[in-house]
Design a binder for these strands. Sequence first.
DNA 1: GGCTAGGACT
Length: 699
Amino acid sequence: MLPYSRALRALPQVARSSRYPLARLGTTVVVRLQHSAPAQREGEVVAGGSSPEVNVEKKQTKPDYAKINAEKKEKLLLQIKAINEEVSKEIQAGVLSNTVAELFFKQVEALPRVPRTSYLVAESFKDSITSIMEKATKEANDVNQQRVPISPLAVLKKAISHNVALPSHYVYVVSQLLAEGDSSNAMSLWVTYLENNVDSKRSFISLLPFYSLVTIAYLDLCISQKSEPELEKLQQLLQVKSLPRVHTLKSSLNTVIPQSDARFKPLSNALDGLFLFSVDPNATSLIVEAMRASELGETRTVHQTWNNIRKASELNGKKITEDTMVAFMKMFNTLNLTSEAQGIWNTLINSGIHPSTNAWNNLLVTVSKTRGPFAKRLGQVEYVKSKIPSPDDQTFATLIRVYTTLKEFEKVEEIAKDKMDISIVSQAYLQSLASRGDFSVVEQFLTTLKKRNIQLNQTSYNMVLAAALRQGHSEKIPELMKDMKREGIKPDIATYTIVMDHNLKELASRGEVFTDHAFELFFEELAQNGIKPNQFTFTAIMDNLAKNGSVEAAESFFRYLQAKKMASPVSYISLITSEFEAGRPSEGEDLFREFLNERYRVTASHWAALFKGLSRNGKTEELKSWLSSLEETPALLNRFSIYFLLTAAKSRRDRELAEQVVDFIARHKMKSVISSKTSEVIKDLERQMDLQLPEYLQG
DNA sequence: GGCTAGGACT
């Protein structure tokens, strides 16, 4: 036996020890994760101006200035404390802001002159000034208030003149000015701030809210003056090199200006434009990020990135290269968003690029995946194929894959027969055989390849392994893995995931319980081989855990996946299904709601999992309300969902639900979603509760 | 290109 399969072999042999041991695995990781959270929080203002250390080693003959200073300081602090206490007393007693402000500043004036650069005094008055401002705002909003209150701006100006104004006070007033639409005064306050703080050190973090507001004010002024915002001008204005991040700015915008305000949308667009202007549409980082998202099924992120790339190119005139376009075509193909891929192809042609063979090959995949009957898709494939100026080996391999999905196996044979010596073609052919279902044919072809001295690559081996297991030939695994080793092909994470998943299922089928030890061995072996588990590995573990352990343990594991940004539609649906199976319909529903709010493309088959779960749990009221929610998007209801809805109506004898479903089908003219099984259920319902069918469904 | 989920009958 091979050393690297030690842990895999160990999995089915583990003892039945503790009940839900993996629950601990999940929680340990989560706990560890929480502990490693960053200790420092963004936006925390560090109190400025620490008091200078007093040097006590001075000669005793001279007057003790240090002591005198310390005494002075102590006296000052006491005075400040008294002033602050008075302010809060007055405010509590309901004294008007006008008076509070007047008294307050009079007392501040009476103090020894506050040096401009000292934050010590300013810091200690921070809260008092803020509460006076807040009181003033409250009074201004109070319709019963007769006297005209002092404005927060006036409070700020006084504070400035006494050198006790802090950035947070400016921010308070600037926010109000922005909300009122007075961006030019908001901007002048920033200039005032700069003038009054020329010598002081500025911390980017503590000024972040201020920077954000000034950026918004600047953009607002640009919009109203119909001038183009410029990044450089803004940098000069703020006197910084790096600007706040887009999401920081957007959240400032959200707090200051309500979305219903007419200025909101233009400002939000201007923010995007400002930053996209400096984006290189062909930056590798963008493609890498989009590829990560597409692997996880995060459709919205891929869309957003592509849209940003297009906007950036539009703004700064940098052309999107063919490589970038093809990369996105490929991503949209994997996500089955063929109309997007088609759109990119059109852009590519319209921008005058002469498409490479690589681009053509991707188009083949696009048209083969575009929704519609197989015959129509085949026609499109043939058309594209005939247009490719110089097909390469990759084209033939792609054609084999495409014909395989369209079940055109004769065409597969035709392409493959005289190109078996081209490695990628023979691999594609082997994969085609593996996907079909007769493992003996796969084995035969493996012998042929051996005779011809053609080696399988990693992916092909994995597909063959998966095919063997899928068709119940687990006895073939050791031999295949031995071959793999002999040919120097290393098992990768996919290999491990395939075999581990199978072993867990076998273990479960024997009624055994997973133990920590088995998983420890598994992860240890991965580590020894330098292999990192991925979202597939974890999803497989979570799925098996939910089906053969406890849903609670799976939940904890799932939260860990989320924290690691490894959750996907697959892990969501797996857990949702398990919740329903475990008789926890409300947990299943909650999770489905969460799933809808994520950035995934939710499909009809995902919805079917919800309808099946609710149906099996007899939740007819919930079924009714979820069904109504699909009124605008009836395409999300497939034949399985319809079947589950109707069987629930039948078993719970819920006439209302039955009527709602048939009515839905009739109104949306969805006859095609009625399968033969479904029509039997409908007949039962007609008999059982004398259900009247709408005209559309009769016959 | 592959690995994880789900889709009628229990």
